[in-house]
Amino acid sequence: MKIDAHQHFWHPHRGDYGWMPKDDPTLSRPYAPADLAPQLAAAGIDGTILVQAAPTVYETEYMLGIADATPWVLGVVGWIDFENPADLAHLKRLANHPKFKGVRPMIQDIPDDAWMLRDDVQWAFRAITDLGLRFDALGFPRHLAHFRTLLNRYPDMQTVIDHCMKPQIRDNSPDHLRFWSDGMSRLADETAACVKFSALITEANPDWTPADLKPYTDHIFASFGPERTMWGSDWPVCRLRGEYADWHGAARTLTATLTEVDRALIFGGTAASFYGL
């Protein structure tokens, strides 16, 4: 089974996508299963993980409705308010849905880089662990040390690092690559986290090539290994830099030197194991 471990659907008129530009021709439009299905078929993808794009429980319920009606949406990563302990009731309720797999706070958009270490949000990480759910860690390289502290605090929490922690590939500086690679190596060595091989083209220049991404992907494969790496499209956000087939093709190029078994893990097996599919 080939799995896209990270994609989105949305309808801007729902009104809770605060990050979305109002007039962006690529992003500010509805995206639904009918838009993605032909591209999945062309790439030979059997199923997906649908990930939150709005900081509301209502959007999580919207996604679960889509998953109920779409057999190839195999799991949903939703959202709860970590700053409101009363949302434990929502988390317990959502955990009863067979396709609800975990949560993702939008940490990359929070001004406090150390937000995940605040005392008032720790109840949520304990609950994720106790309920056997997953934590999708969304951030930037500046969050690496804080995530390492968090994951060492909760070693039994099943965690995946979204988008390789968004290295700023367009920066193309040796110092940035070194800072990112050192931080990712420590996460790989000191925690049990997995990583999503996703969204790298969005962090690159518009004229990106697979060669621009290779230093980053080679480091991920070496540090985490295929058994802890899963491919995701980040569609439709990836359309800011390329279509689904462009990124999927680049990913196949970047993994061409790996064994068939390793590629099977990256393009499906690791996601199936991590998300309990």
Rank of each mutant, 00 (worst) to 15 (best):
A5W: 10
W10Y: 15
L240W: 05
Q52I: 14
M63V: 09
W123L: 06
D175I: 09
G75T: 09
P174L: 11
V121E: 01
R263C: 14
D46A: 10
L64G: 03
D156S: 13
F100Y: 15
P55F: 05
P215L: 14
I80Y: 01
D162W: 08
D136K: 09
L91N: 07
T229L: 11
P30G: 07
V76D: 02
D130A: 14
L151T: 11
G78C: 08
P236R: 11
R134V: 12
D109F: 09
D119N: 09
D46Q: 10
W10D: 08
A188D: 12
V51I: 15
D119G: 02
R178C: 02
P155Q: 05
L258N: 12
M1N: 06
T60A: 05
K196T: 11
G276H: 07
E260H: 13
I266S: 12
A114P: 00
H219C: 09
Q39G: 06
A41N: 04
R148C: 07
Q168L: 14
R29H: 08
D81A: 09
D112Y: 00
D162T: 12
L64S: 04
T202D: 04
Q39N: 06
M1Y: 05
D162H: 13
A67H: 03
T229E: 04
L40W: 11
K92A: 00
R241E: 02
R239K: 03
T159V: 15
T270L: 10
P215G: 13
L74F: 03
T149V: 14
A41H: 06
F267P: 09
I128M: 05
Q158C: 04
K196I: 12
E190G: 02
W180P: 00
L94R: 02
K22S: 10
Q7A: 05
A199Q: 14
D218W: 09
H163C: 13
D234S: 10
T26C: 01
L150I: 09
D109S: 07
K99E: 05
A86W: 00
A34I: 12
G249S: 05
L254D: 10
D109C: 03
A43L: 08
S198R: 09
R228M: 06
C164I: 14
A95P: 01
K166T: 02
N96W: 01
R93D: 11
P206C: 07
Q7Y: 01
Y31G: 00
H13E: 14
A145H: 06
K101F: 12
P111T: 01
K101T: 05
G18C: 13
A114M: 01
I161N: 07
S173D: 09
G18S: 15
W19Y: 15
W231R: 13
P55K: 00
T209C: 01
R148K: 07
T149L: 12
A137K: 02
A53Y: 12
N96V: 13
D4F: 12
V57W: 04
F179G: 00
T26I: 15
I3P: 02
R178K: 11
T209A: 03
D24E: 04
V121W: 01
